[in-house]
Amino acid sequence: MTWVAAALLCTTLAGGAASIYFYTRLVQVEADYRRTLDDLERLTIMVDVMVDYGNGTVAWFNGTRVSPGETLLNATLQVADVRYTVTEFGAFVDAVNGVSGVENHYWLWYTYDGGWEMGPVSADAWRLHDGDVLAWRYTGF
């Protein structure tokens, strides 16, 4: 009986020590995670990107984190599979997530500032700022 009690004492000591150690590690890792997140928030911006496929399907990619001054094209590349052609006027988006090929339909982008306004330049020339809300619409003419 004494030996069993002693063996249980061993397992209790080992278990207790391991619990304290792993709890301490958890607290350290959580603190590291919070600090890293703070750093990330200081070094990046967040934008919301909408993709309207023109067939009733709309997808929002809210809180997309990009570097300050990143272009809309690169932000879109983060959230969708984009095929584009670089022309003398800038990048022209041909397909988003495989949607393309409908006659007289084009991928155009818009920015939101109280209302949707068509992008004035190509997507690779538009620099993003924190809180920007943008949209890609498969627009027919």
Binding site: W3, A6, A7, L9, C10, L13, A14
Partner: peptide, 13 residues
């Protein structure tokens, strides 16, 4: 001898 494992563990602790 398992008893000696206990002895070794506790002494080392």
């Amino acid at each position: 001898d398992a008893r000696l494992a206990v002895v070794g563990f506790l002494l080392t602790f």
